[in-house]
Design a protein around this nucleic acid. Structure first.
Lengths: 202, 202, 202, 202
DNA sequence: CATGAATGAGTATTCATTCAT
DNA sequence: AATGAATGAATACTCATTCAT
């Protein structure tokens, strides 16, 4: 079955190159303005081949999103001496991952497409946003169990931290495609965490 | 010159009706999918007339935004007995105004167009988002002056309050076009304000 | 309202030229192979203008058919001395009209599209084929009333005459796009009419 | 060479399955809309294999037609007591065979393709339609020889009978893909045969 | 010999913008 | 000043045919 293996590997390579080109073009142009023919050209593939791999522009975009979700391995708060440092480090890891994976640019497209594809936005919210909150809440819960935090509504706590961080570090990124994680990001995070610990620290 | 006045008033009426139709169509279809001819039809005006008033689709959209900014008359925190109630009421007014004026739908379009029109997003952020924070910070500053709050970084305070509220009441609305201000909005706001007052209340 | 009249006349001229170009291209290439862009080019019009006049390729084709139906003014059998000659002349007029208007070529397209557009074929059959039979039957009925023919089932009679004529002069034309009304057409018709009169002549 | 035989039989089986699938798809979708890849899939064969067996879509369609011609074994009028019954039975056999073999659907495609492939239509007419007339004429000639019919132009006779039958039972079927041989078909045929016998019966 | 993947040349349709009147 | 008609460029998607393995 050498032939079959060969074909599969070629096919997978093309699949990946289309996905990558799709990601790039969607990020550059948004959904509506992205031209399928551009994506095909960037992937060194004919449009017909592209359509062999993905049944429609929409399906290709969903695949791009899917890949981004899957790369989002959930992290957790490490254990150790200083609670403040631990939470700050956790928040920074999440932020760095999001900036690296250009999550904000993808969010921009999803948000843009909300009126035409509300189910996609809902799907994303349920599978990407909410789980992140839950994971963060669980991480905080563990700190409560360890006696590092007072017992409290940790889901609210996660939203509290997430909200303040978003205000400074996500919200502006939605409006500025070139924004990178600023140098004072850690200071901002630390300020939020301190406020949080003042309220809920043990 | 009654004739001239008449003409000007007719022209202004057309201008306004184009703006209104533009707003409606952009909100309904987003930027890319909105058709200039649809807007002209809805405004009972020929496309050529529309182009006499606005040099391009983009300029028309900017005018729609401009109008929305201007309608956003800044509010302030009333003075009175209970600080918590005052801040909650202020936040609720801001939220209600945003939901009523469908700000989230406009934001969605602006965000969508960030890669193509980054200067618009920057302009909006500088003229719409930041001033709101400043105004809120000033309102809080007044409460400090009145001895209702401890002296603290009120700009951070505004972001704190704004971030938590956004997390619950703006962020989800970006992902769900049909979302209305939920019944428990005030409870959510109050919870944020209480946390805030616990930290910074006098 | 000179402007309006001018515009209308220009618009009607374009409409007519699109219809004519459409007819020509459909007749040449059939429905599936006919390219809307070809039609537009032949009509000296952009495709967008074509789409202003006709909402779709299908609608344009229906309009071409409609025009052909409408040109089909029903004829009748003249009165006069020799019954055979009268019927022969009537049949020849019908045939000539059909050949001139290239009805067979249109029928070819309609027949081709039966699986995809059965309602169009039904519509045509009900509005074009059946009425022709009825008209012929009525014409024969008049000859019965005049005592030129024995009383008989004239609808069957019309089908009898029509069937024999079709066998020789329509059926082959469906299979040969270049076929013209042959020189011996009148002889063929006369032979059919004679057989008919032998059966039903007074 | 058992291996060779095996290979040939496999190849022939594929050939046949392609032909069958081709027939089905062409009948379902017409020529232009039929997709070669659909045919290959239905035949459980790769497109490349299909192209090994048939050099082009057109050639495949011709082969489908060829097969349909060949299945059309010519029938003849039986001998026996009642001439009317014999002719009626003969006509009915022809009609039934045509309905069963879905000849009208194939004709529709051929007619559709006349402008692009006139030689095919001519070929079909010469090898399928005319021979049928000749065969019918010969059958009638035999009845003349047996003294059942008066001497007459039997080719005209065949066209006469064929024409009337077509008018009622073939022409409408071209315009209605779902039409089946109607219950009163025999009555219609009998009426035509009676008229015929009134003219040419011995 | 058989294959599945690849493709280039199409197809119908849309839309922001201009122009003759 | 106002219009409705006109357009060229673009877009997502399809398909008969070929080719490397």
């Amino acid at each position: 079955m050498g032939l079959e293996n060969y074909r599969r590997s070629v096919s997978e390579a093309k699949h990946a190159s289309i996905l990558k080109a799709g990601r790039d073009v969607f990020l550059r142009d948004g959904y509506s303005r992205a031209a399928v023919s551009d994506i095909a050209r960037d992937a060194n593939v004919s449009t017909a081949t592209l359509y062999k791999h993905f049944r429609s522009k929409e399906e290709l975009f969903d695949a791009v999103l899917q890949e981004a979700y899957e790369a989002d391995e959930s992290d957790s708060i490490a254990e150790g001496a200083d609670t403040e440092d631990l939470i700050v480090a956790y928040c920074m890891r999440v932020l760095q991952s999001q900036y690296e994976r250009r999550v904000h640019a993808l969010l921009r497209i999803i948000i843009a497409e909300v009126p035409k594809a509300p189910q996609r936005a809902r799907h994303l919210y349920e599978n990407f946003v909410t789980p992140r909150h839950v994971a963060s809440a669980q991480a905080l819960e563990r700190l409560v169990a360890l006696g590092k935090l007072k017992p409290h509504d940790t889901y609210y706590g996660a939203c509290f931290l997430g909200g303040v961080m978003k205000e400074y570090l996500v919200w502006p990124a939605l409006f500025d495609a070139s924004m990178t994680l600023p140098d004072n990001a850690e200071a901002i995070v630390r300020q939020a965490v301190r406020a949080y610990l003042e309220l809920y620290g043990a």
